[in-house]
C-alpha cells in the first residue's frame, strides 16, 4: 500500500484540487480476504459534509470498503488492504498512523445496534473518557447531554440515564449508538446498514438524524434501500462484484445513471 506510484500521487492531488471539499479519498484500493480478492482498484472520493451512500447487490464489497475507511478490517486476520486512503492529507494505512486516533476521527455505527451492556450515560461517556475529551463530571454531563440531543434521544432517556442501554428499544439503541459515535467528535461517521434492524418509524427518525448530522460530520452510509439512499444522500457510489461501477450525484444516479449495471440494479433487475 506504500508502493504508491508517482502517477497515483498525481491522480490524488489532481482530484483534491478539482474538489476542494474532499474529506477522504481512496486510490486503487484492493482488499483481499486470504487469497480471495473482495475489492478491485476502487477509486472513490468522499466529500466533506456530504452523505455518501454505498449501494450494490449483496456481497459486492460495500461493507468491506466501509471498513477500510477506519481500518476495522485490521481486526480480521486474513484481511489485506493495498492502495492508498487519505483522510484529509494523512495516509491512514501509514505505519506511523495511530489506529486509535484514526478511529476517534472516523467513527462507526454498525448494522445491529450494539450498545455496551452498561448504563446509557456510560455508553456515551466511554468514548470521551478513553480519548481524554472530558475530565470533570460536569464536562461529561455536558457531552452526554449534547450527544443525546444531537441523536434526538435526549427527551426520551433524560430521566433514565443510569438504566442499561440494552433496555432501550431497537430504534432507540441504534440512536444511542449514533450518539455514542458522535460523542467523540469524529470528522467522519461510517454507517453500515444502520436501519436494517429497525421498523419504518425508527428508520425515519434515524434518516432525519442523518440529515441533521450532515451539517457537522461527513457521513458514509451503506444501504440496501434505494429509497433510503435517495432520501438521505447527496452522492452515491454503486459497487458490483468488488468493482466500483459508478459514482455520481444521487439525483443523477437515480434518474439518469451512466452505467447500465447501475440502471439495472436501481430498477430492481438484479441484486
Amino acid at each position: 500500500m506504500n508502493m504508491l506510484t508517482e502517477t497515483a500521487v498525481e491522480k490524488v492531488l489532481e482530484r483534491k484540487m478539482t474538489n476542494s471539499a474532499l474529506k477522504m479519498s481512496g486510490t486503487d484500493v484492493c482488499v483481499f480476504y486470504g487469497e480471495k480478492q473482495a475489492l478491485h482498484n476502487v477509486n472513490l472520493n468522499i466529500r466533506e459534509n456530504t452523505v455518501t451512500a454505498l449501494i450494490g447487490p449483496s456481497g459486492c464489497g460495500k461493507s468491506t470498503f466501509l471498513r477500510t475507511l477506519n481500518r476495522m478490517n485490521d481486526t480480521i486476520d486474513s484481511c489485506r488492504v493495498t492502495g492508498k486512503i487519505l483522510l484529509d492529507t494523512d495516509d491512514i494505512y501509514d505505519p506511523n498512523i495511530d489506529v486509535v486516533e484514526l478511529r476517534a476521527r472516523v467513527g462507526m455505527v454498525f448494522q445491529k445496534p450494539n450498545p455496551f451492556p452498561k448504563s446509557i450515560y456510560e455508553n456515551i461517556a466511554y468514548g470521551p473518557r478513553i480519548h481524554g475529551l472530558a475530565r470533570t463530571r460536569a464536562e461529561f454531563d455536558e457531552i452526554v447531554e449534547s450527544s443525546l440531543q444531537r441523536a434526538g434521544l435526549w427527551n426520551e432517556v433524560k430521566d433514565r440515564l443510569q438504566e442499561p442501554g440494552t433496555g432501550l428499544s431497537g430504534g432507540q439503541q441504534q440512536r444511542l449508538c449514533i450518539a455514542r459515535a458522535v460523542a467523540v467528535s469524529p470528522e467522519v461517521i461510517l454507517m453500515d446498514e444502520p436501519c436494517s434492524a429497525l421498523d419504518p418509524i425508527a428508520t425515519a427518525k434515524v434518516e432525519e438524524l442523518i440529515h441533521e448530522l450532515r451539517a457537522n460530520f461527513t457521513i458514509v452510509i451503506v444501504t440496501h434501500s434505494m429509497q433510503q439512499a435517495a432520501r438521505v444522500s447527496q452522492r452515491t457510489a454503486m459497487f458490483h462484484m468488488g468493482y466500483l461501477v459508478e459514482e455520481n450525484d444521487t439525483d443523477k444516479m437515480f434518474t439518469n445513471p451512466d452505467d447500465q449495471r447501475t440502471q439495472d440494479y436501481i430498477m430492481g433487475r438484479f441484486g
Binding site: 476495522m72 450494539n114 451492556p117 468514548g127
Partner: peptide, 22 residues
C-alpha cells in the same frame, strides 16, 4: 458477543481497553 468488541474498537479503544473494559 463480537459486536461488543467491534463497538469498543470502532470507538477507538485499544485492544487492551476493549478487553479490560468490556
Amino acid at each position: 458477543p463480537p459486536s461488543i468488541r467491534a463497538a469498543a474498537l470502532g470507538l477507538g479503544a485499544s485492544k487492551m481497553q476493549t478487553i479490560f473494559h468490556h
